[in-house]
């Protein structure tokens, strides 16, 4: 189950490293927000697999739209002098951590048969 996705990750990482695409310095910030969005989508995807609510096409479209919108929002925020960038970092950070904790819960409850409905962290 997890072999192909991890292969994809490593191939992508190797490709990105070898291609050595230089992101223009003034865009690095927006790409970092896009990166957070991507991370959020991935953990959301993993969670949805565990939930059984997974839809491949939703994940892929969500992945790209979230990245683009997050980067774009950060850019717009910079343009009008509002740090939407920070809002994105905060929102995605919270979501990522909550997703991670849910994933952890799911895994642990799956193996140790703990009732996943009591919500103590």
């Amino acid at each position: 189950m997890w072999f192909l996705p991890f292969l994809g990750l490593f191939v992508g990482a190797a490709l990105g490293y070898l291609l050595n695409i230089e992101i223009p310095a003034h865009l690095v910030k927006y790409f970092s927000v896009a990166f957070l969005a991507a991370l959020d989508t991935i953990f959301g995807g993993i969670k949805s697999i565990q939930d059984g609510s997974f839809e491949g096409i939703l994940l892929i479209t969500g992945f790209f739209t979230n990245m683009l919108v997050a980067g774009f929002f950060a850019y717009i925020g910079d343009s009008i002098g509002v740090d939407l960038y920070l809002a994105a970092v905060f929102a995605f950070g919270v979501r990522i951590f909550s997703n991670i904790s849910q994933i952890r819960h799911n895994i642990i409850s799956k193996y140790f048969k703990i009732n996943r409905n009591d919500n103590n962290e």
Binding site: P5, F6, G8, L9, F10, V11, G12, A13, A14, L15, G16, L19, F31, A34, F35, A38, L39, T41, I42, G45, L59, I60, F63, F64, M67
Partner: peptide
């Protein structure tokens, strides 16, 4: 998505 995530990262 992990492939693209790798590239992005």
């Amino acid at each position: 998505i992990l492939f693209f995530f790798g590239i992005l990262t």
